[in-house]
Write a protein that binds this DNA or RNA. Structure first.
Lengths: 146, 146
DNA sequence: CCGTTATTGGTAAAATTTATCAGTTATGAA
DNA sequence: TTCATAACTGATAAATTTTACCAATAACGG
């Protein structure tokens, strides 16, 4: 399974342009932080890391929300505790999260649609979507424990 | 599909006893709030609702965390925004959430294990668990829109 | 009923998130 | 390249959410 291939800066810039938004130094800096991390960051972590790079906290909050809306960042719930954001491929994807190092691998799930049809019949709901996150230990973390 | 059948107060009381914990008026009050709601509450909502019933905010936070640890409350992410807690059957269950009224219906998922085996092969992770939440519109909310 | 001790409430403090607005800067046009 | 416009930012204040603290309370066993 391929590791997440990140969106290029140029793609990002043009998507901003199309939306009538400016691609500022700060926005690029925020994106780079996430694009280079397999694990992602919580808002607090990102704000702290970006302060050193002259990006104010308010801008970090605003930019992360914006990138999430645009589909470039995904929110990871990470086993019921902290929220993190990771760079992701726009569209419907899911994440496999390592309980050891926290690294995130994207995958395009399936098998769920069948379940959804069953649920629709049994509950009377019309099903519109789902959120799935899988947890495990990556091979690297397994190796480290030996 | 059956509506969530709540744990009885007596069951709850004895589980507290077994764990060496006291079953106080406040803890019972907190439980009752959640047990009677199909939708659940966020911590802020619960704290506000319980203040009227003479349960302090600190106690609400502590008790919700405790009930979650014991498996009587489950955390709902609710479509990427607010966290809510709902009374749930202990064990591995998932939730179907109405985008209209927010009501939550439990279900025991399946189909996921097959996906997990596939992911294990493709990523090298050893898979240990997952979190699944499904969104839709309940029949009551659909009816209301007509 | 009593004593022990877990639990609570009320408040203070900490941590997180949002609002505000004057100053900055990306962008397109000239 | 320069300029004008308006989006964006930063710094701080304010609001909101969560945790810490400790004397007072009350659940539970004996």
């Amino acid at each position: 399974m391929k590791q997440t291939e990140n969106i290029s800066i140029e793609t990002l810039r043009s998507r901003f342009g199309e939306a009538g938004l400016r691609f500022t130094r700060q926005r690029e800096t925020v994106w780079n932080l996430f694009a280079r991390s397999r694990r992602g960051f919580s808002l607090v972590e990102a704000a702290k890391a970006l302060r050193k790079k002259r990006v104010g906290p308010a801008t970090v909050y605003r930019t992360v929300a914006l990138l999430e809306e645009m589909g470039f960042l995904c929110r990871i719930h990470d086993e019921r505790r902290e929220h993190r954001f990771v760079a992701c491929t726009p569209g419907h994807v899911h994440h496999l999260v390592c309980r050891g190092c926290g690294r995130v691998v994207e995958f395009a799930a399936c098998g769920i649609p069948i379940l959804e049809r069953l649920l629709a019949v049994e509950t009377g709901f019309s099903i519109e979507g789902h959120y799935l996150e899988v947890y495990g230990i990556c091979s690297e973390c397994r190796g480290a424990n030996k």
